[in-house]
Amino acid sequence: MGLLDKLKGLLFGNETVREGKQDAKPGVKPADTKVEQKPIITKPKEEKPVADKITVGHVHMSGCTGCLVSLADNYEGLLTILDKYADLVYCLTLADVRKIPKMDVALVEGSVCINDECSMEEILETRENATIVVALGGCACYGNTTRFCRGGQQNQPQHEGFLPIGDLIKVDVYIPGCAPTPQQIRNVCLMAYLLLKGNDEQKALATAYLTPLMNLAAAGTEACGCDLMTEVINQGLCCGCGSCAAVCPVRAVTMQFGKPQIERDLCIKCGACYAQCPRSFFSFDVCGQYESITNLIGEVMKP
């Protein structure tokens, strides 16, 4: 895990330098006072390796790395996750591992180019080696912008067929959106940890939390702003709250007379609007406990 370790080292290293400087400020303390040098890192770095961490991998298919950046944008939260709950066992960008290993959770970013043998092999390996396959982001879930590919681009003009991973393998959990948010990825990682390593109560919570995202995965690989019409308004369910308009990454959704108006030519098919809609899925069991769940997440994310 070359880069990652370096990253951690860099961060901790920086702290050392900063605090060291403060302690050694000249002229502030009387000369005869002994400045006790506080040990900066009291514990050795890996003093108590957490044995029951889950293993997580990031599999990069045809995507823009935006989803991975989103994961990394948990900043120190990412380090907490990696310290306490998950080992990143595979991630071409951050970890020096070439072969897809066995892992508990595979976060797959991007759609699969079916004209590329290597991609086809990798998605198959991912399914075979991962207990839970998470489609991370719009491309993996629904194709997103890769739905508009038609080949002819340099430097691989023959690459024109791109499929969401759910069209090739069974996917367990969807995280839609372009890009998916750091907080949503964090929540799924934590819930996956609770599901695999928690006690009965925690497992029940994780199951309740993940069920809607599993249902999305079971529902198919097509998404569009039109879902707001076909699945919400046409079904007589829209309450006009405006969530869809807030989350659209390309501002294709505006609210007119209290209902979403979709500029279909702008829509990139990321699936965020429908998944965010309170009338696409809503769990009273989960959302009713928002206060305790939010506190729990805050608690476990403390470094």
Binding site: S70, P176, G177, P182, Q183, A246, A275, Q276, V286, I293
Partner: peptide
């Protein structure tokens, strides 16, 4: 409800 769903499932609410 939408606010709370958005807090627990921030699909697009970075």
């Amino acid at each position: 409800q939408a606010v709370r769903k958005g807090q627990l499932y921030p699909i697009g609410l970075r």
